[in-house]
Amino acid sequence: MSVSASSLPRALSALPAMARVGFAEAVAYRAEMLIWILSTSMPLVMMPLWLAVTRGGPVQGMSSSDVVAYFLATFIARQLTSCWVSWQINWEVRQGTLAMRLLRPIPPIFAFMVEHVTALPIRLVIAMPLTVTLLVVLAGDKLPHTLALWALTLLSLAGAWTLTFFVQVAIGALSLFLQSSIRVMDVWFAGYMVFSGYLIPLRMFPTWVRDVIDWLPFRYQIGVPVELMTSAHALPEALGLVARQWGFALLALTVAWLVWRRGVARFSAYGG
């Protein structure tokens, strides 16, 4: 990601072509996309489980209709923030195809970003219509009421995407030092499953655990946008959360940049 002054304009001028390629690729592999969507549909399976818990009455202030809204929103946020760059980097390092990417005049991380973003439309076309309709029909009253909260929701979705992407770049780039960082990603993913709000709404945790979770990055990967989407916070609180989220995102970006730069230097050392 050594974006020097000359490579950035060049990368930007290649953007339309890269976007077209990325989109065409996503269309070509739409069957796989369907499988990916299925494997990220865990929130929809967790919904009946939490409905069983809340059947006897609200738990921690969450009623059955809150559970429905929460997990529909989680599914939507998961589709919007899906990321696989860590596995991609690992694969390219192992197969050696990363060398080809480094030779191109486009910074690889930028290329990965474009690939991820251009895969979104197809994904949304497959996954969104039904779930968004369900969310609006079943829980329309839980959606944000003011324009400011809507704006913050969108901003936090972008923040979640950025944070997730650069965390994965950082972990993926570790493969340049460790040969494979899939295991590191597994550990991260295990933490994400439990502490992000993906499968367990965070307010179900005892207070002291939630205090710890506030200082872990996982909640900002999906929990915060979902909470904002379901109006769990008033404006001042929401502002604070989004600010903290972007703080984490910038931290991840910095770490990713450092690890990647040092790793790539080692990688070229192998070749030369």
């Binding site: 738990v59 921690q60 597994d186 295990a190 499953m193 439990v194 499968l199 367990i200 179900m204």
Partner: peptide, 16 residues
Amino acid sequence: SAGVALIPLFVVFTHR
């Protein structure tokens, strides 16, 4: 991972 896997169970059963 076994430890992490137990957490959701703990969380669910603190409420019921």
